[in-house]
Design a protein around this nucleic acid. Structure first.
Lengths: 214, 214
DNA sequence: GTCTATAGCTGGATAGAC
DNA sequence: GTCTATCCAGCTATAGAC
């Protein structure tokens, strides 16, 4: 006889778990995106998932651990594969923009991502890959550390200090800022253009001190 | 008869105001520096100042306004005077380091500084001065905006994503990161060196596209 | 695994006496 | 201008029934 398949209830099984770790993490991230880091409370998260707050504690030990899991899940979206197959300049460029895309999709989480960096497995794995890639390209250990940190600073700064954060009424008193074309109309475009300038000119400057190719 | 001087009590006058707006702002900043942004509560701030929490409301309208006043006071320490007297490259460099020093002295406040940027008078004034200085040096409006934003990103990123924030135990699993000389021993030095690399190489790269000097 | 109920805090802000 | 007293809201986390 073939093995019996698991029972497939015609209607939703009331005893089936309504919560999983993945659903909780995804719900928390959505809540943070929509209403900010302070809006993430166990009660509000439970409400969004259609359960009571106490039920969350069957899947996550504490709010603090949950928040780190959310941060780690965002970090997993950062792509460092370029360091396995591309010259260092292209690899850095791809990594930077992948990193920026991941952060800017969740701007409210950026401050926590920066603080939690040192205890997120996904972040540390990626940092090690970047460092190893730069070493293979001939950069000295201390240069490799600085180059990777510099790119990381550019990305975090752009994601955090974004013009997309908006201006208050006081900004109207500073006319110079407002006559600058697209700043008001399309702040996200200005942010990307500024980061492109920072990264491209930085990489230009790096070429002048790069290790000789093998 | 000479005008009577104001009465000078031999002992501290119990009726003299013990709180001023300045003392409150300074106390709040010290509390944030010592114990983090979350530690700033009206009760704890009052305790540090030797009064009851309710008394603070005679000098500040709300905690939110107070926090912006604290942020503005930090921004007032940023020096943009170089744009009045130095070539654009030196002016940018001085501004960047003055900005970094102001932020890194209060790392716990950096996320709030970034978010509040657009409504802080001191921040907007300085942004306008930087923009005007770059315009006078011949940069087009959109280039000037991007250059100023790029430097700002570098500074915020370095202050926020600092190695000085430390690593968790998980970092021990990534040996590559630890063999990098001074990273563990003197993280603040590594941070400064990485920011120096980012700014210097970026400015190098900018020279290649700079407007011709008059 | 989810529920109800609640313990045990901590917070911002206000009213009114002095 | 500072005080005491207090309101009311919100939070994390746990205990124990089902």
């Amino acid at each position: 006889m073939p093995p019996t398949p698991p029972p497939e209830p015609a209607l939703a099984d009331a005893r089936a778990p309504r919560l999983t770790h993945e659903r909780i993490v995804a719900g928390a991230l959505a809540l943070i995106d929509e209403e900010g880091l302070a809006a993430l409370t166990m009660r509000r998260l439970a409400e969004r998932l259609g359960v009571q707050a106490a039920s969350l504690y069957n899947h996550t030990r504490s709010k603090e651990k949950l928040l780190d899991a959310v941060a780690n899940s965002v970090m997993e979206g950062v792509d460092t594969s370029g360091f396995d197959r591309l010259p260092w300049r292209e690899a850095l460029d791809r990594w930077a923009w992948s990193y920026y895309d991941a952060l800017v999709a969740h701007p409210n989480l950026v401050p926590h991502l920066a603080v939690a960096f040192g205890r997120l497995p996904a972040a540390l794995e990626r940092a090690a890959q970047v460092f190893a890639g730069l070493r293979r390209a001939g950069w000295t250990p201390s240069r490799a550390t600085r180059v990777a940190a510099a790119v990381r600073y550019a990305v975090y700064g752009a994601a955090l200090g974004s013009f997309a954060g908006g201006f208050g009424d006081e900004a109207a008193k500073v006319p110079a800022l407002h006559d600058v074309g697209q700043l008001r109309a399309q702040p996200a475009r200005v942010d990307r253009a500024a980061l492109r300038l920072l990264i491209d000119r930085f990489l230009d400057g790096l070429e002048a001190i790069a290790p000789a190719p093998e």
